[in-house]
Design a protein around this nucleic acid. Structure first.
Lengths: 221, 221
DNA sequence: CGATGCGGTAGAACACGTTCTAGTGTTGGT
DNA sequence: ACCAACACTAGAACGTGTTCTACCGCATCG
């Protein structure tokens, strides 16, 4: 299974979608450039299997034995590509986030004030996740895991938020903008974790984000 | 073992430290009032065992079989009191946070502006955690777990932050104050999770909190 | 007193992430 | 052609959270 509709690019996605230059920091041990086509194929099948199982049943449904079966690969082979379940899911998250960001950035945000525009962008991102709630929760959960392998996924997501916000807040002072985006990143992360862990609804996530955008951006605008 | 020095009240702590009225919402299934002294004792021994093992070796050192041995209790008995390891740790977190909040609130915060005072309070809380890093990380990790049982712990922590901040920001508009504290809660939570998962240093946590306090509070001051 | 039920105990059993063992191609150097 | 290295595979094995089974002691009710 491919990643869910709303997030898949309309055309077949070229492998160069995410070239080396956008990932200065390693997120897992293997350098994709040195892999044989066979290995790349296996790796992608594994990520696709994670998407499929996660979309159907959430985090606990992504069981390594099932991933192996779904991807037609031996269990141990997963661990040759990803150091853990969470790193596999984090890799999936990276792939997803990159596409989501591209889609969101593409369209100009609605809204009159910077705060409104920022809210619009975040809402659209939330809406996309809401369409695949189990999958989203699974990926977020992996990102918030203590697993070292998931670090890269987290920083990739952070970069996406910053790149989504920079255009909107371009009129603000450089330092203030950085600070606001950092704080927004925390609110985003924290709210989504609460949601992924079943402690709050999606409306709640949106409310928290709105609140944060207003209280952060309005006084500077 | 009792909770760590810095967080333990100076005098023997009465059991009424945290009476029923401060916990309007249940955090685990058992109503403490209906327990026999025997049961209360076992429950407390379990929490103490979690403190001890967590302080020594962090989250993974809090192994249920060891908790059972340390508390002199059968493995299955733990699960009669707490629905999971994470709920046990969340209960420990609640106990800890309550005492920490009492200590922090007691002393007037240093600093000239509200932002500085808020930073001081948060720094003091951070410093206390830094003195027991493994234990803190273990408790935070439990709070951020998907386990339903940990919900109560989370809301108890949230309440503590709000009560620490309310005095300081009392001159601000009611709604703005609520919003600021909510956002600060997210920053706190998100930063601590990153730290507990080994993704950032303690200095980083402090920096993020400072940044947030300034960018949030200064324009309203 | 006997029955019943509840909470406790010891220990086996189970689930799932992860690691290990052994064996089987396949590839590249000599 | 042969050997070494390496990625893969099937499957067993291991660790730790959680659950299950069987049993026991004790209080409360009739």
């Amino acid at each position: 299974m491919q990643p869910p509709d709303e997030l898949r690019p309309d055309e077949p996605r070229p492998d160069e979608l995410r070239p080396d230059d956008v990932r200065p920091d390693e997120d897992e041990g293997v350098d994709p450039a040195t892999l044989t086509p066979d290995q790349l194929g296996r790796r992608q099948r594994l990520i696709d299997a994670a998407f499929e199982l996660g979309a159907a049943g959430g985090y606990e449904a992504v069981q390594m034995r099932d991933v192996a079966i779904t991807a037609n690969v031996a269990l141990a082979t997963i661990y040759r590509n990803f150091s853990s379940k969470d790193e596999l899911l984090a890799a999936a998250m990276t792939e997803w986030t990159d596409r989501l960001r591209d889609r969101v950035v593409q369209r100009p945000p609605k809204g009159d004030s910077p705060a409104e525009q920022m809210i619009d962008v975040l809402n659209r991102a939330c809406a996309a996740m809401q369409r695949q709630p189990k999958l989203s929760a699974a990926l977020i959960r992996a990102l918030s895991s203590p697993d070292a392998g998931a670090v890269g996924g987290g920083s990739s997501v952070r970069r996406s938020i910053v790149s989504m916000g920079e255009g909107i807040l371009s009129q603000l002072d450089q330092q203030v903008r950085v600070d606001i985006l950092a704080v927004l990143g925390h609110v985003w992360y924290s709210s989504l974790i609460s949601w992924a862990n079943g402690r709050s609804s999606f409306e709640r996530v949106n409310e928290e984000l709105e609140r944060a955008c207003h209280v952060l951006i309005d006084p500077y605008d």
